[in-house]
Amino acid sequence: MTLTFRCPAELEGKIPPPVPATLGLPGWLKAMPTQAFNKANMRDEDTVKRCPPFVDAMTSGFLLPLICDLTIENGAITWDNDLPPSTSLDFPRSPIGYHDECQVTGSPLFEADRYVMKFHNLWTIEAPAGYSLFFTHPVNRFDLPFTTLSGLVDCDLFHDSWIHFPARWHDTNFSGVLPKGTPVAQVFAVKREKWVARTAAMTPEDALRAQELSKQIIREPGLYRRQFRT
């Protein structure tokens, strides 16, 4: 299965490309220990670095990058982005834009006199027939000073225009440089299918399996990784 990312010809090689999320793991995850001492249990226990669901979510899909450095100082955002002009296509030349506060009136995002920022993405994205794309904040990236809003786009049909990423800048004390290539969104392909929910009480056999698996997980650390992870 292939997602096709296209940028204006003038920008090829001049803006960072989307990357598989496996190549964009943050330094803190690579540096953190796999085990740490649990004072309550008085023993070493696995950290989230050894939690397959935590890591698998971070390494799935693709990461969309910031197109240039952003300098944040005293509440002001500046950049130096020398993109060549286009002869055939208009595209945003700034790395960010904004949504007026009125567009989030009545939502938890609303705050008087505060815009919702928007990261400009200069890659169009085409998905295979029958697939939509789910865009969200880079998974488990609580270290980033912003939070990207989530959205679902039918990119098998809508693939000839830009998809930009609204975000809330939550770290108002941040000062420094957000470097070019910083992931500003993560994208997952979602097959469009109709789903319904079915609920049921456990049968005695269901309860026995659940009880046995729970005991096995305690006895055998790493069981999910060895036996169930695909």
Rank of each mutant, 00 (worst) to 15 (best):
F5K: 02
C155W: 03
P95G: 03
E193P: 00
Q211H: 10
D69R: 06
P183Q: 10
V48T: 07
S150M: 11
P17C: 01
P8D: 03
L83N: 02
F146V: 02
P65W: 02
S86G: 14
I72A: 12
P65N: 02
A197H: 06
M32G: 10
F134G: 06
L144A: 11
R43F: 05
K30D: 15
W123H: 05
L208W: 12
E10M: 05
D206M: 12
L208H: 12
T148V: 04
F91D: 07
V184Q: 02
L3G: 08
T34P: 03
S214T: 10
T124H: 01
G61F: 09
P92H: 04
N41Q: 15
D56H: 01
K30H: 15
I218K: 12
E126A: 06
P179Q: 07
L29G: 01
P16V: 05
L64G: 01
D154L: 10
A207E: 12
I96L: 09
E193L: 12
A31F: 08
N173K: 04
T203G: 06
L3N: 01
H159M: 00
I217V: 14
R93D: 07
T71P: 02
A210H: 09
H170C: 08
P145I: 07
M58Y: 03
G130I: 00
E212Y: 10
K191R: 12
F228M: 14
K194W: 12
D44H: 15
T147D: 11
A129Q: 13
S161R: 04
P17A: 09
F5W: 05
I217Q: 11
S88F: 08
C7A: 12
A127N: 00
V48M: 15
S86T: 08
K191C: 00
E193N: 07
I125V: 13
P92N: 04
L66N: 09
F110L: 08
E205K: 10
A57S: 14
D154I: 04
S107P: 05
L157A: 11
I218Q: 14
I15W: 00
A197G: 01
A200D: 11
D46W: 04
Q216E: 15
R209W: 07
F174C: 09
P65D: 05
H170T: 14
E193T: 08
L178M: 15
C51E: 10
K180L: 11
K118T: 12
A76L: 13
R209V: 10
T136E: 13
C155M: 13
L3E: 01
R114H: 14
T78Q: 10
L64Q: 03
R219T: 11
A201I: 06
L89G: 01
G13A: 01
Y98H: 09
S107Y: 05
V190A: 13
D100K: 14
Q35S: 13
K30C: 13
H120S: 03
R192C: 03
V190K: 06
H170P: 03
P84D: 02
T182E: 14
D44Q: 11
T87N: 15
L66T: 03
Q103I: 08
P20K: 11
L83Y: 05
S60D: 12
F135Y: 14
T34D: 15
F165R: 05
D46K: 11
G130F: 02
P128C: 02
T4D: 04
L152W: 01
